[in-house]
């Protein structure tokens, strides 16, 4: 037997492996008396290795069983949230499409009416979302990523509509109340709100261009005032190097484009006289 083993040590890897396979049953029967070599390596554990109980494997199984149940539950919640988020996305698409009519000189009240119908749909969906999250208190931010972009989009559309309506900024609180959110329970994340405003700013250059084409020469001044103010308000924020920062950095291009349009209109004397003075003062 020893001779076979010795050979196994020094022959080619493949042969060695085969030899090992055939040797296994032998090893099981080997006793220290006729196989002294095995005593040195086996059984060392008696003097101080950890005490491995047989129940270790089953206690591990129980632990993981618990985890599986928990993770499956949170997976279900996430799936339901994603379902709502998909519906939100659809509602937002319809809302966006209806708002795009402002570029085609459809009257503002008409556009607002259509947009508001979708706001109601959104409010409903946010209500459902809040309902789901009520089941897992404190875990808002665990699932937040699943409706973030929808919220940002909603803020961008709502704040644009709000500006069309009142020429002022939709505040965070107003945005929440439009969507029926209660900040004590299910609020709107501040960063989502701010990112939404940046998205809204992206829409303004196109709006200005189309309004001027349609003969509204006062529009650039109004938009420029608003956007300048918004931009300088954003500069009060200490931003990290994150998505919001990137979006804010993009805002200056919107501002420049609107300035250009304003300049084009002004230099040709198209802007109403009173308004030019207003801007200058």
């Amino acid at each position: 037997m020893r001779a076979t083993l010795r050979v196994a040590l020094f022959c080619s890897p493949l042969r060695r492996y085969c030899a090992a396979e055939s040797r296994r049953p032998l090893m099981a029967n080997a006793t220290p008396s006729n196989e002294p070599s095995s005593a040195g390596a086996g059984g060392v554990n008696d003097d101080g290795g950890p005490d491995f109980s047989l129940s270790a494997a089953s206690s591990m199984e129980r632990l993981f069983q618990d985890f599986r149940v928990q993770l499956e539950e949170s997976g279900n919640i996430r799936e339901r949230i994603r379902g709502v988020a998909t519906e939100m996305e659809a509602a937002l698409r319809v809302m966006h499409a209806s708002i795009l009519l402002v570029h085609q000189s459809v009257s503002v009240p008409e556009v607002l009416m259509k947009a508001k119908a979708q706001t109601d749909v959104l409010r409903d969906l946010y209500g459902r979302l809040a309902g789901i999250l009520r089941e897992c208190p404190g875990q808002y931010y665990r699932y937040h990523g699943d409706w973030r972009s929808e919220t940002q989009n909603a803020v961008s559309l709502l704040s644009f509509v709000h500006w069309l309506e009142s020429a002022s900024l939709l505040t965070h609180v107003e945005a929440e109340s439009k969507l029926g959110l209660d900040s004590s329970e299910f609020g709107m994340d501040t960063e989502d709100y701010l990112i939404g405003l940046c998205f809204m700013s992206n829409e303004l250059p196109r709006y200005v261009v189309n309004r001027v084409t349609a003969g509204d020469y006062d529009c650039p001044r109004k938009v420029l005032n608003f956007l300048t103010e918004l931009h300088s308000a954003f500069r009060m924020l200490n931003l990290r190097n994150d998505f919001l920062r990137k979006k804010f950095d993009g805002m200056k291009y919107d501002l420049r484009r609107v300035e250009e349009v304003y300049y084009d209109v002004k230099i040709r004397g198209l802007a109403p006289v009173g308004c030019i003075q207003d801007q200058g003062s």
Binding site: N45, F64, R142
Partner: peptide
């Protein structure tokens, strides 16, 4: 301490086997 090593081996195999079920359903 070969026996100890073999127990570690068994332990790691158990963990790996259990985690194959968990990994796909993690957040």
């Amino acid at each position: 301490e070969v026996e100890y090593a073999e127990k570690i081996c068994r332990f790691v195999q158990n963990i790996y086997r259990e985690l194959t079920l968990l990994a796909p359903i993690m957040d």
